[in-house]
Design a protein around this nucleic acid. Structure first.
Lengths: 341, 341
DNA sequence: TTGAAAGCGCTAACAT
DNA sequence: ATGTTAGCGCTTTCAA
């Protein structure tokens, strides 16, 4: 089998027309019907596909968007990605993927790669944005939108939820159920994206209820299963003077739930747990996990829409804040008066 | 801020050399040191980045690989993707992503898009390959490798595990623990990729133990949490004459576990469960899920390596079969003699 | 060693 | 309505 790749010139020659005419055919400009037919037949015959590279070179636009991701294997990221992919594709854009593993050097590489590839826009997904990276992103001179993260510079747009408010809501809910000693599995202490605002929301809710914040009840770890498990296991070994746990992610909550159950305690009888994210798994743990759910796919879709519109008309996009929702399931117990510590 | 994009000609002019010389500098060919320096300074000054599009047009190679995926939001796919991305990037290839949602029309679109984009190779991830798609893939004339799936045509390479053997292994393990009535949550009945071989492995194991296969103990569903939950819930409503469950995926197993626990039964006291895949979550369910783990990241890496080497030297890759491993955790009970039905 | 120039596949302006 | 041609940014002969 010969490796054959025909071009428009070949098509034109076979059809007996000029290159320009053939070009008009594939671009839906007017050509005499019989000529059009001939060209179409020739295209068919040669199994011709337009070369987008050549077209891009000419048009100075690749119809491609670059996506930087901290960790593709995260289910949360996957959902957002699905939203992005769908809208981008429908708008005629291809997706160039770069996994940065939260590594600044790789982020810089990604930006370089995107510039070389002449992407028309960039979506930066999920990670906290460092200043140098933000600088690098600006120097690309293409529109950039952040999904699930923000950066204080009007050059960028973003799509997020209100993390402070969401955490406030969850903790207020717990207080409403009679809980007063609430442990916070807080994520990364210096993460302006999730860890910090959610901790603030936690503190605000407590304050509003007249409960003073006990810093020893706030433990910073990460966002992964393992941290939830390890941290809760350690905590349970030290003390049991809290009745509820609010975790920064469902993964952490599920890890914590395992530690609780492993310790012979019941959820929610002995300890109530609220998670954050609303991953599908939260529905199938036993008991089902009450959680603050984020509209991941929608976040991706909106990020994509924002980017597409900025690539089209160069408009500033602004910051879009999407609604969250508290999903009540079975992991929270309402406390009777006498149970309070 | 002006949108500026300089090209090599600008660099050459600023450096006071010819275009050809500037080109040699960025391609590390020999130029007089002082000229090289001038060019490098000019590049710096103009913040020059080579235009990969132009380079691709000339070189007739984009250093890009296209990846078709059934569902990006699946954690399993994410892990494979991570392996692919890592190796590809290290080998100098970019990744073009296309999510096909198991839809043949979208798969055809993906192939079209890849051809237009002039990808140098394609990785097809996870889904069962239809004949028309295989045909379309062949007509691209670029190397294609399948990850986690196969197609009987030497044009393609593949990276998989031995699904029949893995299922055989798991079921034999269950038999070794004294189980004789084993329910199979079988996935899709017509899926030559996972469903069929795993069912065959199940049957072979049973046969070898002298246990006759009870077809009413085999229930076909899908691979998702919901199916495991629904199917097991229904089954438990009808009968309880089995002591173990082997599920085609960890998601299904976890869904089933929830149904069992919800029914007031204990895992593994009343019912043993074995999953398939080895996702991280399997470690944090309570009890921990015993499962057959697949080396997802490695599958991605090897697929990528195979593809890269085929793109380089055009060699046929063949089919790579990677080892699986049974992860013993807490979801299986050893049955005493008298417990047998 | 360096410069000039052709050409990768396509589009669009211009001429016919 | 169609053909001719310049040129997108780069690499690579070929001459000098």
């Amino acid at each position: 089998m010969e490796k054959q790749r025909y071009n428009l010139k070949d098509v034109a020659k076979l059809a007996g027309v000029s290159l320009g005419t053939a070009s008009k055919v594939i671009n839906n400009q007017y050509v005499r019907p019989e000529a059009r037919l001939k060209v179409e037949e020739a295209m068919q015959e040669l199994d011709y596909t337009p070369n987008a590279i050549a077209r891009s070179l000419k048009a100075n636009s690749t119809k491609t968007i670059g996506i930087m991701i901290p960790d593709i294997s995260s289910p949360v990221v996957g959902k957002v990605l699905r939203g992005i992919e769908k809208i981008s594709r429908d708008s005629g854009y291809s997706i160039l993927l770069y996994n940065t593993t939260r590594n600044t050097r790789l982020e810089e590489d990604a930006i370089q790669a995107f510039m070389r590839s002449q992407v028309d826009g960039i979506i930066y997904l999920g990670n906290t944005v460092g200043d140098e990276i933000a600088e690098g992103l600006k120097r690309t001179h293409v529109p950039v939108v952040f999904a699930m993260t923000q950066y204080p510079d009007k050059y960028f747009s973003s799509v997020t939820i209100d993390n402070e408010e969401a955490a406030y809501h969850a903790v207020t809910y717990l207080c409403g159920k009679g809980h007063r000693r609430i442990c916070l599995l807080a994520g990364e202490a210096d993460d302006p994206n999730s860890g910090i605002p959610r901790t603030e929301g936690y503190c605000r809710a407590l304050g509003e209820q007249g409960i003073s914040v006990d810093p020893t009840l706030i433990v910073c770890g990460g966002y992964r299963l393992e941290r939830g498990y390890e941290d809760m296991k350690r905590l349970l070994g030290e003390r049991r003077d809290f009745t509820a746990v609010f975790a920064v992610s469902d993964d952490v909550a599920i890890g914590a739930m395992r530690a609780v159950q492993e310790a012979g305690l019941g959820v929610p009888e002995d300890l109530s747990i609220v998670g954050f994210d609303g991953i599908e798994m939260a529905e199938y743990t036993f008991p089902g996990l009450t959680t603050v759910s984020q509209p991941f796919e929608k976040i991706g879709e909106e990020a994509s829409r924002l980017l597409v519109s900025r690539m089209k008309d160069g408009k500033r996009g602004g910051n879009l804040v999407l609604p969250f929702a508290l999903q009540e399931r079975e992991s929270v117990l309402g406390l009777a008066e006498e149970t309070l510590p």
